[in-house]
Amino acid sequence: MVNGEADDTRSRILREAAVLFASRGYERVSTRDIATACGIKQPSLYWYFDSKRTIMAELIGMDLRRVGEVIAWLSKAEVSPAARLFRFLHIDVASLSDDSYNLVGIYDTNVLEHEDFAHLDKSVQKIYRFYRAVLRAGVREGQFVDLPLPVLREFLIGIDMHAGRLARTVNLPRSANLPRDFATLALRGVLADPGTIEEVSADALALEMPPKVADVLGRSATPG
C-alpha cells in the first residue's frame, strides 16, 4: 500500500470513528463498527490502530493541541477578558462546526472522564484554567456578572458544545454565522452590561491571529 492510500485510509478511520463516537458514545462503538463504516475488514483497521482507545486518543489529542495553541495565544493577548473569551468561543465553535472530524462526541459523551484517557487530564485542565483565569479577571474588572466561577464556566462550555452539535445536525440558512452568533449569545449571558457586546466582539475579531495558530486551525487568520 502506497503512503498516500495509507494516509487516506487512516484519515477515513478517524473521520468515521468520530461520527460513530458522537452518535452512539464511546462505550457503544466497537472496532468492527468502525471498520464497517469505513468499508474495510476489521483486521485491516488494526494495521492503522490497535484499538478504539487509540483512535479516540488521537482524536482527543488533535483537539487538545488545537485548543492549546489558541489558549497560549489568547492568554497573552492585550485585550479585555470579555474580548479574549469572545474570540476563544468564536474559534472553538468554528472548529467544531467546520472540522472534517466530528469532535463534538469527545465532550458530549463525557469521554474525557474515562479511565482510558486519564493521561490526557493535564491538557484538559489547561482549558479549565483558561476559563477560570478569564472569568476571574472579568468579574474583578466588572465586565462579567459576579456569579460563582463554576456556574459561569459550565454555562459557557454548554453553549460551546451545543453550537458544535447544532451545526452538524440542523440545516442553517446561508446567512447564519454560527461562531459569531453563539459567541455573542454566550457573552450576553455573562456580561454585566450586555450593551457592550458590539464593542467586545469588535475588539475580539480585530485580534490578529499568529501564523502558527492559523496553521494549527487550518484556516485563514482573518475571522469570518
Rank of each mutant, 00 (worst) to 15 (best):
H114S: 05
A167V: 03
I197C: 01
S97A: 12
T9F: 04
G61F: 14
G39C: 08
I55M: 14
V104Q: 02
G224E: 03
L120M: 11
R66W: 11
A186P: 01
D7C: 14
D50E: 13
W47M: 11
A57F: 05
R87C: 02
Y107W: 09
D121Y: 07
H119L: 13
R168T: 00
R136K: 15
A94Y: 00
K122G: 02
G195H: 09
L191G: 05
D8Q: 11
D33Q: 14
R180F: 14
I157Y: 14
L187D: 00
A202Q: 15
L147I: 09
Y107V: 02
D8P: 12
R10I: 13
A186F: 00
A35C: 14
W47R: 10
L166M: 06
V111G: 14
T169C: 08
K126P: 02
L191V: 12
S220D: 15
T36N: 14
R219G: 06
E198N: 04
L59S: 03
T109N: 08
D108V: 11
R140A: 06
E154Y: 06
A133N: 07
I13A: 10
E16C: 03
L20G: 01
L14H: 11
Q42A: 14
A35N: 12
D121M: 15
V19H: 04
A163N: 03
E27M: 13
A35H: 05
L172A: 04
D7S: 07
G189P: 05
D215Y: 13
V200D: 00
F130C: 03
E199P: 06
A18P: 02
V124I: 11
A137L: 08
P81R: 05
A163P: 02
S11H: 04
R32G: 14
A133F: 06
A133V: 03
Y128L: 08
N177V: 15
K122M: 12
E141P: 11
I159E: 04
D116T: 08
V93D: 00
A206N: 05
L96A: 11
A183M: 01
M209R: 12
L89V: 09
A82R: 00
Y46W: 04
A37Y: 07
P211C: 08
P211T: 08
D116R: 05
Y128R: 15
S80W: 11
S220I: 13
D146Q: 12
I91S: 15
I40M: 14
E141K: 05
A176P: 03
F130A: 10
F88N: 07
W47S: 14
V134S: 06
D63M: 07
A83Q: 09
L217G: 13
G218P: 09
L172D: 10
E69I: 04
T222M: 04
K122E: 10
V93L: 01
P173A: 05
A37P: 01
A204R: 00
H162R: 12
G105M: 00
S23Y: 12
L205I: 04
D215A: 07
E141Y: 05
V145G: 11
A35R: 03
R15S: 03
G142A: 07
L14S: 03
N3E: 08
A57E: 08
E199N: 15
H162M: 14
C38N: 13
C38S: 06
G142R: 09
T184F: 00
R188T: 12
A176W: 13
W73I: 09
A202V: 10
G68I: 15
D92Q: 06
A35D: 05
L45M: 14
E5Y: 15
I13Y: 02
E141H: 10
